[in-house]
């Protein structure tokens, strides 16, 4: 099968006064149409930077210094900004952790969803509003007519994440990048949000890349898993194969997750990298 997303030798640096940190180091990764793939690793393994690099959205002092990101026949890293903006939010949806901080606090959530649609499609205000209301209903928020007029601060964290998912899928993207989509949510809400994300992607045939530290999410929602460590992808495997027989970094992540006894090889590394970053 042709990959939907083909990342080749992608390299991203953070250039700071204390020195240069190579956050993403010559990463190759393919995402196929309709699949759910998990990218896992400890803190500072480069997994989030990878996601933002795919959209050419690395915040300064981060800088993409090499590689290619092929998506729907074009290399996103060489596209002019204007063309790239037609891809972001339209062909590729992004879901960030802590949605409340990323929604516009001064704008009603229904208007925010409508704005995403109107930025990329020729739709009138009324149509966009009506579709926004339908989307709010689809993501499982009761009373959508009333809720679409709410501001983010009036909604719970779980509801804000539902709104963020509605925004991410509003333009029927072929790929959804979800960075820790359930960080900070309670476990009962977490499964609701992940079910929703999976079902929304399935309905539209979108591929989804979930960036997470939580191997439980990978085990129950992803078909494949890519393990990152110190900026490199050290292992890519089918989920079942990974949990049956993971490589050394995968093993140490699993042990840490389960709080099993034994060496947690990743621990000192992530601590040192984190301190070098400060």
């Amino acid at each position: 099968m042709e990959p939907l997303l083909d990342v080749r030798q992608l390299t991203t640096d953070y250039v700071t006064y204390a020195g240069t940190v190579r956050a993403v180091d010559r990463v190759d990764l393919q995402v196929f149409p309709g699949e759910l793939i998990g990218v896992v690793g400890t803190a500072a393994s480069g997994k989030s930077t990878l996601a933002y690099s795919i959209l050419n959205l690395v915040p300064p002092p981060g800088r993409i210094v090499g590689g290619e990101v092929w998506f729907e026949g074009q290399n996103l890293l060489t596209l002019p900004e204007k063309r790239l903006q037609q891809v972001r939010g339209s062909r590729i949806g992004l879901i960030v952790p802590d949605p409340r901080r990323h929604l516009n606090p001064l704008m009603r959530v229904g208007d925010q969803i409508a704005a995403v649609m109107r930025a990329h499609q020729r739709v009138g205000k009324a149509t966009a509003q009506a579709r926004a209301r339908d989307l709010i209903a689809t993501v499982g928020i009761p009373d959508p007519e009333w809720r679409m007029r709410s501001y983010p601060h009036e909604l719970s964290g779980g509801m804000c994440q539902r709104i963020a998912i509605a925004m991410a899928v509003a333009n029927n993207p072929n790929l959804i990048l979800a960075d820790e989509p359930t960080a900070g949510l309670d476990v009962t809400v977490q499964v609701q949000i992940l079910d929703l994300l999976r079902d929304a992607a399935r309905r539209q045939g979108s591929a989804t890349m979930i960036v997470t530290r939580d191997l439980g999410i990978v085990a129950h929602y992803c078909q494949r898993v890519a393990v990152m460590h110190e900026g490199r992808i050290v292992e890519v495997a089918d989920t079942r194969a990974f949990f049956a027989d993971a490589g050394p970094i995968g093993q140490s992540l699993l042990r840490a997750t389960m709080l099993a006894r034994g060496e947690t090889a990743a621990a000192p590394d992530s601590d040192t990298v984190a301190s070098a970053r400060r």
């Binding site: 009761p142 009962t188 977490q190 499964v191 939580d214 439980g216 085990a219 129950h220 949990f243």
Partner: peptide
């Protein structure tokens, strides 16, 4: 039953509460 254990073969019966707290 909402806890996602890192084991793809463990699929506990999901017991879902309606709505939010």
């Amino acid at each position: 039953s909402s806890v996602l254990y890192p084991d793809p073969t463990a699929t506990p019966a999901r017991f879902v509460l309606e709505g939010e707290i």
